[in-house]
C-alpha cells in the first residue's frame, strides 16, 4: 500500500497508478516525478499549500489536464491521447468540482440522468430511477424538478455528487469540494462524502478539511511545489511522523 515506486501493470486492485508523472504549464513545472497508487477501497486525502499541484494531479487522473511525462493508469488502462479509451476511463471515474459545475440549463434530474442516458443507452425511465436513487442518497430527491440556480451551494454540490455517482464509477475524485461553500453548508457535503467512504467507495480528495481527513482518510498525501512530500497512513501523518514542510503547513491551517 505504501508503494510509491513504479510498479508493473496491471494489478487489478490498483485503480489509479501514477508513474514518474511530470506536467508543465509552458515553462512552469506543475508536477514533478509523481508516483502514487490508489487501491480499490482506498480513501486518499491530498493536501498542501495552494499552488502545490494537488488539483493538477487529481485532474490528470481523468485527463482534464494532460501530463507530458510518465504514465497514468486508471482501472488498468493507460490514459493518454486516444479519445475513445479516454471516454471509457472517464466513465469509471466520477468527479466533483470546487465550483459544482452543474449544467444550469437542465433540471436537477436532467443533470443526473444526462450521463446514464447518453453513455449507457438507458431509457429515460431507467435513468430517472437511477438518478432518483442517488438523489435520495444525497438527500435531495425532493428538489429533482428545480434548476441549479434555485439551490444553495451545499445542495448543488450534493447534486454534483449524485451526478457523478449515477455513472456508477469505480473511483470518485473530489477537487476541493467544500472550498466554495459557505461555512454552514460544508458539513452537509462532508457528511455525504463520509457516508460514501463508509460504503467502500474508492476516493481521492483534495481538501483543506483536516477534520474530514482525520475521520475518513486512510492515507494522507502532502504536496509542495509540485512534488509529493509525504505519503503515509493517516495515524502516522497526524501523529507527527511528517517532514518539516508538512509540519509548517499543518500548524498554519490548524491554528484556528
Amino acid at each position: 500500500m505504501s508503494n510509491t515506486s513504479a510498479r508493473p501493470q496491471p494489478d487489478p486492485d490498483t485503480l489509479i497508478a501514477f508513474e514518474g508523472v511530470g506536467k508543465w504549464f509552458d515553462q512552469f513545472q506543475a508536477l514533478k516525478d509523481i508516483n502514487l497508487s490508489v487501491k480499490q477501497g482506498a480513501r486518499v486525502v491530498v493536501c498542501g499549500p495552494s499552488g502545490s499541484g494537488k488539483s493538477t494531479m487529481i485532474r490528470c487522473v481523468n485527463q482534464l489536464e494532460n501530463h507530458q511525462q510518465g504514465t497514468i493508469h486508471v482501472c488498468g488502462r493507460e490514459v493518454y491521447g486516444n479519445m475513445k479509451q479516454l471516454e471509457q476511463v472517464r466513465r469509471e471515474v466520477g468527479m466533483v468540482f470546487q465550483s459544482f459545475n452543474l449544467f444550469p440549463h437542465m433540471s436537477i434530474l436532467q443533470n443526473v440522468t444526462l450521463g446514464p442516458i447518453r453513455n449507457s443507452n438507458l431509457s429515460r425511465s431507467e435513468a430517472d430511477d437511477i438518478a432518483l436513487h442517488y438523489l435520495e442518497r444525497v438527500q435531495i430527491a425532493d428538489q429533482a424538478d428545480k434548476f441549479p440556480s434555485q439551490l444553495s451551494g451545499g445542495q448543488q454540490q450534493r447534486v454534483a455528487i449524485a451526478r457523478a455517482l449515477a455513472m456508477k464509477p469505480r473511483v470518485m475524485l473530489f477537487d476541493e469540494p467544500t472550498s466554495a461553500l459557505d461555512p454552514e453548508m460544508i458539513n452537509e457535503v462532508l457528511d455525504v462524502m463520509t457516508e460514501l467512504a463508509d460504503d467502500g467507495m474508492t476516493m481521492m480528495v483534495v481538501t483543506h478539511e483536516m477534520g474530514f481527513a482525520r475521520e475518513v482518510a486512510d492515507r494522507v498525501v502532502f504536496m509542495d511545489e509540485g512534488r509529493i512530500e509525504e505519503n503515509c497512513g493517516k495515524t502516522e501523518f497526524f501523529a507527527g511522523g511528517r517532514g518539516e514542510r508538512a509540519q509548517a503547513f499543518l500548524s498554519k491551517i490548524l491554528q484556528h
Binding site: 481523468n62 482534464l64 479519445m83 471516454e87 471509457q88 472517464r90 466513465r91 471515474v93 466520477g94 468527479m95 468540482f97 465550483s99 459545475n101 452543474l102 449544467f103 444526462l114 450521463g115 447518453r118 453513455n119 451526478r163 457523478a164 455513472m167
Partner: peptide, 17 residues
C-alpha cells in the same frame, strides 16, 4: 464557462454529446 466543458468531459460524454 470552462467548468461546463470539464463537467461534460468528466461525465464521459462524447464530443458530439
Amino acid at each position: 464557462e470552462r467548468g461546463q466543458y470539464e463537467a461534460a468531459d468528466a461525465t464521459g460524454l462524447s464530443k458530439f454529446d
